[in-house]
Nucleic acid binder design. Structure first.
Lengths: 89, 89
DNA sequence: TCCATTAATTTAAACATTTCAATGTATTAT
DNA sequence: ATAATACATTGAAATGTTTAAATTAATGGA
């Protein structure tokens, strides 16, 4: 297991707002960036910043559909994280 | 599952040095703070700072034995993290 | 084309984290 | 007692993160 990957994913998760974005994606199945602005009450640039960290780390998956960016959970990453911590437990 | 707990643990893990401390604890079973200074090449106060974050977050367990602090992995926390990510995958 | 919409980027500020030297505290050994 | 050891705390500098206003880029519709 690549520790740099774990570190980056952990960093993405280690933020109140980003964790709430993750949980909302889990709840809704998918989100668009505009939705994130609404329920977090953060500005659009701030949301863009957080979404970038989540996507770059591999925690979320993004797909552009016209001018709309759709965010979904990267379940493969969740599986890898689960396995990593399972091995340590 | 308490998200604040996840966030705090993720934060503890989201650092190169702290992650390497965790892996060394896993490898050796237990460590004392002095060992951490050696293998990380960090100063004693810096190690004390990182160890505090790891212990406060519940990732590591510490027990004082005279003037020596022994660090071990909190496997219960690893189990909880594993379960959290399993549920998301 | 021109305008509205959605998101990314730039910039700068406020804030938080990391780091170590110096110092303090607690414990052990002489 | 005194000195040495192991770790914690304080304080300050360097660095990194978060945030939003302003701007830019890209897409879709009238």
């Amino acid at each position: 297991m690549d520790l740099a990957l774990i570190e980056k994913a952990a960093n993405a998760i280690a933020d109140k707002h980003r964790l709430s974005i993750i949980m909302e994606v889990v709840k809704k199945g998918k989100l668009i960036c505009g939705d994130v602005c609404e329920f977090t009450c953060l500005s659009q640039p701030t949301v863009s910043h957080h979404v970038k960290i989540l996507v770059d780390s591999g925690v979320l998956h993004s797909s552009k559909n016209g001018r709309i960016v759709e965010l979904t959970l990267n379940k493969e990453m969740m599986k890898q994280l689960s396995m990593f911590f399972l091995q340590l437990s």
